[in-house]
Amino acid sequence: MKVFLLKRLFYTVLMLIGISIITFTLSHVVPGDPVLTMLGGRGTDEQIEKMREDLGLNKPIHEQYFIYMKGLINFDLGESIRTKRDVTADLKNFFPATFELSTFAIILSIILGIPLGILSAVKKDSWLDQGARIFSLLGVSMPVFWLGLLLMALFYNHLHFLPSSGRIAMFIMPPRDITGLYLVDSLITGNFDAFWSSLQHIILPAFCLGYLSTAQIARMMRSSMLEVMNQDYIRSSYSFGLSEKLIIFKLAFKNAFIPTLTIIGLSYGSLLSGAVLTETIFSWPGIGRYVVESMLFLDFPAVMGVTLLIALVYSLANLFVDLLYGFFDPRIKYDEIN
């Protein structure tokens, strides 16, 4: 277990270094000059030269990289060219919103996807199965940004049912900042108006963002459930006269759940980066929108910060899933897996 964990953490660090090298290289082949952008497109040669020196842009690229990495160890990601603040501070500001949205979305898709997959498998080829399969097929094929627009037009503009953008209504004070997650903070402080408003705000973007993972979870759950239900031990259990409920939920589900768990881990990572589109449509103030705006400004310190953060969360989520395997299937021994 310890060996496994250390090995995985070591690979995570290696991976982050690799990702930082790729992004860093990309940021330095940019044809546009960030210094010129910062000076508003004009400036004397001296001004430009001085700014370069201040930003360390006149040093060779590998030296600049080492300076960046030295900062990274102290959680210093440099200064954003666009907002003129520390990237770390910006991330602290915007990340909770994305974390809240994607966590809510993954919980929603687990709650929807798993029962849907199980039902679909147990009642194979019924109309319910067909319906669930069409729902999943649309989910894996849906252009999220288009679905978001349609849902917004429907629920906000036509039905006047749900709000269209932001995290909370304009006239309601956000809850006191404890975790940065409005839903959690408002519950802790007992501020139910804020809770209700943020719940209303999160539901559409979370559904939109989570539809793909709901579909993926349902599909995986269905196919692994079908596979397990065909195995000998399930047939024997039936012949022993065990109740169907017991067989499905206790004997079959536990084994069928492991491949689904993998999918959940992978989707959680892709939710974080998929949030880029959803956040743009619903004006959700998270790192997705932050990274799009930074990108348009060629603000690469900010882009690097977001990329590294997402990659870190992605690999931690997958590590967490790997550790959960052992809980669901005690036969798995960690130190034997590569």
Partner: peptide, 24 residues
């Protein structure tokens, strides 16, 4: 395979955006 893993754990849309932003 480690290199492949690295590209897999790179947030795809953001990598694509960064490349598009960098190269035009």
């Amino acid at each position: 395979m480690r290199i492949a893993d690295m590209f897999l754990s790179f947030p795809p849309l953001i990598l694509a955006m960064a490349i598009a932003a960098a190269l035009g």
